[in-house]
Computed example of a mutant assay.
Amino acid sequence: MNRAVLLRIAACGLLGLGSGLLIAALLLSTYTSSRVRQIPLDLDTTLVSNGTGTALDPASLLGERFIISNDVPLVSQQALSVEQPSNADVVTLQVGTSVKRTDQQQDKGLLLAMVDTVTLDRSTAMAVSDDNHPGGSMQKPRTIEDTKPATNIALPHEGLSYRFPFDTEKKTYQVFDPIAQQAFDANYVNEEDVNGLTTLRFQQNVGYNAEGKLVEPIRYASLYENDEDGEVTARAELWGIEGVDPQEPITMTRYYAAQRTFWVDPVSGTIVKSQEHANHYYAREALHPEASLADYKVTSTESTVESQVAAARSERDRIGLWTRVLPISFTAAGLIALIAGALLGSFGLRTDAALIDPGLDNRGGLFSRRPADTGPMPAAQAETEKLPALRPDLHPDE
């Protein structure tokens, strides 16, 4: 195999490689990009927030009067995991949320608990509700002594839940509140730095106005069949109501309001930090709370923020690798390979032509032919000096 054939083979290989790299770059920036911007299927984390608030002492429910304590330490936990159905298009999140008093041991300080399940579109983070995906459900509350398996109550979700979309914009989003069982606006406020990560801050008001004033509380949506915790009737002395017969039964309605702040990574949609002011109370009139069940304000712990920022950065790196780094690298390498292949192919053609017929290339260079024969060299025509022959008489011996 001569040199020209080897050059042609190498040129074809480089041209093929360059074309393949450019096609791969195009696919990465179009099809693969959309598949990479999806909620991971391996989410498994516990988000912890702590703070203080006013809370009912659960033990007092069996006493002579409901005892409500101020400035009690509280902790809120969200245990998030992935359940079925989860596939290439949707992911189902199960989130167990609890609020406890940390000044009481074990379940004695439990104030609130719920298990929310929602199916989300992996690309838009919007709740999915159709014939194949019920959209969501809530686990029916159980007592501590209840040994029966947990049962779910269908609860179609709307808007976003526990995530924001990829490439989050500076606008208003609808975020579902599982306690109120409906979606409310989460309005963009500003940009803020959280542990070195630039985030978008959103605020959601449920029953409060932007200044934190109670304006339109939500009547608590009970999950019990008989609305057992939505309305409670107890003696006036238990409620602590004075000026009436202590034994008079007083019926109060449970209301709920909340104000939340989300710090969101705009690239991945991960909520890296959150703050919540929630108010659960009983009253005869919606805007006049009389007995507080839990009125608290909690903020993500530093360890939770660090882990969420790390998760957001990891998703950013994954997205950046497949949508920017690899497409740019493949494009650059493809162009270099195409140029090198074209140059090598051109050189191979010249080499092939020179080997087949040296007369086809008279431009000089390594494979240029010798000039045409124009006769003897000028030096061959130059006159030369003739040396005289020796004369015979110069040899005396002869």
Rank of each mutant, 00 (worst) to 15 (best):
L120C: 07
L335H: 04
A354F: 09
Q174M: 05
A234D: 10
K297A: 12
S222F: 10
L120G: 04
M114V: 02
R313A: 00
D130H: 07
E228M: 12
T199A: 10
S346E: 14
P266Q: 07
F330N: 13
A258K: 11
R235H: 04
F347Q: 14
A312G: 13
T52D: 06
L80P: 00
G365H: 14
T233Y: 00
L14Q: 01
V95E: 10
P371G: 15
D361W: 11
M377P: 06
T45H: 06
G51D: 02
A389D: 13
Y173L: 10
S161L: 08
L111E: 03
E158S: 13
Q77S: 12
A79W: 10
V272K: 07
L62Y: 12
P217N: 03
A88T: 01
G364N: 13
A283F: 07
A221G: 00
L15C: 03
Q181P: 05
H280G: 09
D393G: 06
G365P: 11
A353Y: 10
H277I: 03
A24G: 14
R316C: 14
V82P: 02
T384D: 13
L349C: 14
S76D: 00
P392M: 13
A11C: 07
D245P: 07
L349P: 10
L326R: 11
E285L: 13
A210W: 08
L214I: 09
H277Q: 09
N70K: 02
D130K: 02
I153N: 12
I68V: 15
M377C: 07
S86G: 05
Q247L: 02
V91Y: 05
S69P: 03
T331F: 10
T261K: 08
G334K: 03
N362G: 05
G365Q: 13
R3P: 01
K148L: 12
G135W: 07
T102D: 05
T97G: 04
N187V: 08
V189G: 02
G51Q: 01
D42W: 00
A55W: 03
S268N: 02
A380Y: 00
G16D: 04
